[in-house]
Nucleic acid binder design. Sequence first.
DNA 1: AGCCAACTTGAGGATGTCTTAACCGACAAG
DNA 2: CTTGTCGGTTAAGACATCCTCAAGTTGGCT
Lengths: 224, 224
Amino acid sequence: MRILIIEDDKETATFIEDALREQGWASVWCASPKEGLLKLGSGDFDCVILDRMLPDMDGLSALRLFRGAGVDTPVLMLTALGGLEDRVVGLDAGADDYLPKPFATSELLARLRSIGRRGPMQREEAVIEIDTLRIDRVAHTAVRDGKVLELSPLEFRLLVCLAQHRGEVVTRTMLLEKVWGYTFDPKTSLVQTHMSRLRTKLDKPFGTELIRTVRGTGYSIGAT
Amino acid sequence: MRILIIEDDKETATFIEDALREQGWASVWCASPKEGLLKLGSGDFDCVILDRMLPDMDGLSALRLFRGAGVDTPVLMLTALGGLEDRVVGLDAGADDYLPKPFATSELLARLRSIGRRGPMQREEAVIEIDTLRIDRVAHTAVRDGKVLELSPLEFRLLVCLAQHRGEVVTRTMLLEKVWGYTFDPKTSLVQTHMSRLRTKLDKPFGTELIRTVRGTGYSIGAT
DNA sequence: AGCCAACTTGAGGATGTCTTAACCGACAAG
DNA sequence: CTTGTCGGTTAAGACATCCTCAAGTTGGCT
C-alpha cells in the first residue's frame, strides 16, 4: 500500500508515518492540498489521508478539488470535530471513510485495510440510471420519467446509497453506517421512516415500485 | 457460517447478532466463557467472537482455556483497548484476528469472511445454480424458470442451506443448527412444516421436484 | 394386505417487523 | 419573531412470519 498524507501538523504526520511504516506500508507526506494534487498526479497511491482542518484550504474543498480533477483514489478524512453532521458532510463530499481525532493507531490501520480491500477500481459513477430513474450525484438531482424528485439531502443520500448497490440488498446496518455515520443501532424506526418518506416521493407517484423491502434484512433497488 | 458470540454486554451482543443475521449467518450468544466452552463442544461453529473484557474471566484466559480443551475454532477477539501491545498479546494467545471497539460493522463482517475463507473449503458463493433454479445470496432472490420466488426469510435460508450442500443429504439436525441456530431438537414438525411451505413455492408450480425427501434422515436438493 | 412410523399439509394464533402519520425540536431565512 | 424545512422519535395499525397442533397421507416392512 502506498499512502499519501496531507496534514499540516508535523507531529501528527510523523505519528501516522510511524504507524504505517510499522505496518510495512509506504507513505508520502505533504503539507498542503495543492502539493498533494501534484503528487497524486505523478505517483500512484492506494489511499489518501486528508486532514479536515488545513491552513490554506479546507479539507472538504480539497476533496472536491481532487474529485473535480478526476482523482478517484480513496480518501480517509481526519477531523478534530467529532460531530455527526460533520461526518456526513465529509462522506457526502466523496470521502470514503472518516476518522475523528484523536484516534487509536489500530483504528487507523483497520480503516485503511478496509479501504484497501475494496480495491482501487471502485469507480464512483457520477450518474446512475435505474429503469427510468436517473440520479446525478454531481448535480445532486434525481429524475424519474422526466419528473424531478424533490428530495431532502438525507433522502438523496439514502437513494444514492441504494443505487450504488443496485441489484444487491443493502442492510439496515449498512445504511446506518453509510448514510448516517452511525456504528450503533438507534433502536428506533429511523431507517424505515426515511425509507417510507423516500418511497412517497420516488414510488408513490409512479405506480411501479423500485424499492423492494427484504424483510429482516434491508432494502434493495433495481433487482430482478 | 455459524458464529458463537461470547460477550457480556447484551446491547453489543444483539447489535452483532443483527448484523450477522442480516448477512444471513446464524449466531448463538452466551455471556460467559464457561457457557461458551459447553456450546463449542456441542454445536460446530465456524468462528467465535470473543470479548476481551468479561466479568468472571478475562478474554485471554478464556482463549487459553478453549485451546487447552482442544477447541481449534478460529477466534476473533474484540477489545476496547486499542493499544498495540494488547493486540500482540491477543494474537500470541492464539486469537486469529483482533478488532478494537468501537468497530464498523463492515469491518467486522470483512474480518469474519476472511477468517471463514481460511477454514475447510466452504461453499459461500454468492450465486448458486441448480438446474433452472438460480439463487443469488447478495440480491436475496431465488428464480426458477425465470419466475421470481417470493420466499420468506426463513424459507430463503432453508433453501440456501440445502443448495450449499447440493447433491448431499442434509439432516434435520443439521438444518436446525444452520438455519435455526438450535442446538436441541424441538420435538415438533418444525423442519417439515417449513420444508412443506418451501416446496409449495419452489416445486408445486413447476411440476418437477427439486427437493427430495430422504426418509428417516433429511432432505437433499440437486441430486441425480 | 395391513400396520406403524415417518412425512405432509392446513389452520390458528402469538409474535415480530414494516409502514405510515403525527409530533417535536433544531435551524435558517425572511 | 415568525415561518418553513428538515430530520429524529413515537405509536398505532397493517401485515408477514413462524411455531405448534392435529388430522391426513405415504412408504416400508412383515
